[in-house]
């Protein structure tokens, strides 16, 4: 077990390799109950959230979710989150390590009449992810649930909020279930999927699959010193929706063009470039590795690096620091792997 944002979580249940393959080939079940979950309601909650986040929540109908960013006044990324629009207000799912900070930030910005409630400890959250997730989930009638759509329903006879979202690049579902029943749903999904090869999957498989899909991890690939354009998340910034926190700064950054950019790197077997390692080109430091792992599925190590914008193109050769020595790397296209998810982003992606 490892400490992750204050939660004790398994790196693997059996083997990262097996769990990773289960997610890519069949489906894997993650316990992501550590993620922060807030309910945001009250008269002007739409206006309030529009002021907080970068994406445009306006077009969202009830039962739709959207990938979003919280930025500070300077345009730095406070956190990334998924915002759900329900019939009785909004729901936000944030990173575990940022839960308390995000809650405080939201409360500080909230006008009177807005209720922000931390539901993290009342609701469990499971992620069932993989190309066969829909077929193997013990629930009915999900064929027409669109990517980034959600609805109430029963999973193994227990009430859940079922959302077609995830963090692996595969099709799949995230299930919000009352904490006292979540264990039963966990067991039922594993039992139903056992024969097909469904496995419980830990943090190791989660990190590998999200990195293959080039999904950014807050704290690794971005933080308050990084803006959305540098993180390759400019598509979540809707400057046309009106003023919001950070919009002035982001307007300027967009006009001038970002100074840095995230790129994908591939290295030779055994050369895992870790977070913080240097990226070199022509004998000079050109950037830093933000995330790196060995991809069992692809068969080689992969990494994301934050480098000076406009310096590298796909196919370029660079040098990365591995275990204190220099190792060759190749710039590759992102994502490293495109799974069964129907779209890399929410339906409102422009």
């Amino acid at each position: 077990m490892v400490d992750f944002g204050g939660w004790e979580m398994p790196q693997q249940y059996t083997s990262i390799r097996d769990e990773h393959f289960a997610v890519r080939k069949v489906a894997g079940l993650f316990d992501v109950s550590h993620m922060g979950r807030f309910r945001i309601a009250g008269g002007s909650s739409l206006d309030f959230l529009q002021h907080l986040v970068t994406n445009d929540l306006g077009p969202l109908v009830h039962g739709q979710a959207q990938y979003n960013l919280l930025c500070n006044e300077g345009g730095g990324i406070i956190d990334d989150l998924v915002v759900y629009r329900g019939s009785e207000g909004f729901f936000a799912v944030v990173n575990a390590s940022n839960r308390e900070r995000d809650l405080k930030w939201m409360q500080e910005q909230a006008p009177p009449g807005i209720e922000i409630e931390d539901r993290t400890f009342e609701l469990g959250l499971l992620a069932f992810q993989g190309p066969r997730a829909q077929e193997l989930l013990p629930a009915e009638g999900l064929e027409d649930l669109p990517y980034f759509g959600f609805r109430g329903g029963d999973v193994a006879g227990i009430h859940a909020l079922i959302s077609r979202t995830g963090y692996t690049g595969e099709d799949g579902f995230e299930l919000f279930i009352n904490s006292d029943r979540v264990g039963e749903v966990w067991d039922a999904i594993l039992e139903r999927g056992q024969e097909a090869g469904v496995l419980p999957a830990g943090l190791g498989a989660r990190d590998a699959t999200r990195l293959e899909a080039a999904l950014r991890l807050w704290g690794n690939d971005m933080d308050e010193t990084v803006n959305p354009y540098e993180a390759g998340l400019g598509w979540t910034v809707k400057l046309g929706k009106g003023s919001f926190i950070g919009s002035d700064a982001l307007q300027k950054i967009k006009a001038e063009g970002p100074r840095r950019t995230l790129i994908g790197l591939k290295t030779e077997a055994g050369n895992i470039a870790r977070h913080g390692a240097a990226v070199m080109s022509g004998g000079k430091r050109a950037g830093v590795i933000t995330s790196g792992t060995h991809s069992f599925f692809l068969g080689y190590p992969i990494a994301l690096a934050m480098v000076e914008a406009g310096t590298f193109r796909v196919g370029d050769r660079v040098v990365v620091e591995v275990r204190g020595r220099e190792a060759p790397a190749e710039v590759v296209k992102l994502p490293f792997y495109r799974g069964s998810a129907r779209s890399a982003a929410s339906p409102t992606r422009s």
């Binding site: 693997q12 190791g204 077997a269 055994g270 060995h294 069992f296 190590p301």
Partner: peptide
């Protein structure tokens, strides 16, 4: 966690006790 690579010395090398002789690389570290 899952080991992905080992960097190992060649036969014939002499080692003293507690000397570093290689690296084991896992997904984690």
């Amino acid at each position: 966690g899952d080991v992905v690579f080992l960097e190992l010395p060649s036969s014939g090398r002499k080692l003293t006790a507690r000397e570093t002789f290689g690296v084991v690389e896992s997904v984690k570290a």
